[in-house]
């Protein structure tokens, strides 16, 4: 067991872990502010990846260049989904909310298949393809970019939520919407912003992913299931919980895949999840 191999496994574990974390943070942000689970979250990722791919083939815009625009696009998309769909079912029963986002998932998947077909598309030769070699250690650029990009995005979001007035308003609306509205905070605007920021997170993840992963109508399912696990593991609504859980999942699956069997690589992830649900149902960092 060489140091080189360990370094490689750790980097790819972290690379995937940060991607899971970023997707999970988007999910948990929306949940934390308004207690709605977005079942179409994976499809948001899919849209971001198609956008990144299309920007590349139509304008030759590398994912590095298009990343902020994709984040912005997804922000707008998230806000639009809130105003056009979510706001209308908020007053309804819990089921209405579930069916609304679930329906959105089915609709977006079918729309993607209708417009783009079921084929796999991948970006060739992006700036971040290739590897860096440090000594004997071969580190794939896209995964390093995923680590760097995702941690920067997480930091930014953190600063926004915990260090700005806007963030305070968001948290206020999350804690008690009525009390917040008596203080002049419009909860509906806050909810819309939560959808915007949550979707922007997924946009950044999509952009980073498109450097090395292909896009197809069901790509969301590949990542989002683990993101849900990360959310539950970290504690619903907890941003740093989602971050830690995402990284844990990334590292666990790579280690299991290498040392034991790749057929079993998600087993410890789900076992940990079950253990947490049984022993500490609020998750690692959950409040309640």
């Amino acid at each position: 067991m060489s140091d080189q191999l360990i370094a490689q496994l750790v980097v790819s574990g972290l690379g995937m872990g940060f991607i899971f974390a970023l997707i999970a943070i988007g999910l948990t942000l929306i949940y934390g502010v308004m207690e709605v689970v977005n079942f179409a979250h994976g499809e948001f990722l899919m849209i971001g990846m198609y956008a990144s791919y299309l920007a590349y083939v139509t304008w030759g815009a590398d994912p590095v260049v298009s990343l902020p625009f994709i984040a912005l696009l997804m922000f707008v998309f998230g806000v639009a989904v809130y105003y056009l769909l979510i706001r209308r079912v908020l007053t309804g029963s819990m089921h209405a909310q579930i069916f609304a986002t679930f329906g959105l998932m089915v609709f977006l998947q079918a729309a993607a298949q209708f417009f783009m077909g079921a084929d796999y598309f991948a970006i060739q030769n992006s700036w971040l393809s290739g590897v860096i070699t440090i000594g004997d250690v071969v580190l794939p650029m896209p995964q390093i970019a995923a680590v760097v990009g995702a941690s920067l995005a997480t930091l930014l979001l953190y600063a926004l939520v915990f260090r700005t007035s806007l963030g305070r308003q968001l948290r206020a609306a999350a804690q008690d919407a009525q009390a917040a509205s008596t203080l002049g905070i419009n909860p509906s605007t806050m909810y819309a912003l939560a959808w915007g920021f949550g979707s922007a997170c997924v946009g950044v993840a999509a952009s980073l992913l498109s450097n090395f992963y292909y896009v197809f109508p069901r790509v969301g399912a590949v990542f989002v299931l683990l993101a849900y696990v990360a959310v539950a593991l970290g504690g619903f609504g907890s941003i740093h919980g989602a971050l830690v859980a995402g990284l844990l999942i990334g590292l666990l699956q790579v280690a299991m895949g290498f040392f034991v069997s790749s057929e079993l690589k998600f087993v410890p992830v789900y076992m940990l999840y079950l253990a947490v649900v049984l022993l500490r149902p609020r998750g690692l960092f959950g409040r309640m």
Partner: peptide, 20 residues
Amino acid sequence: VVGYQQGTSDVTSEVQRLIA
């Protein structure tokens, strides 16, 4: 012999085992 689950997001560990 490396078996893997369909719909996997990353095959680094699989490929590292092949390299070894």
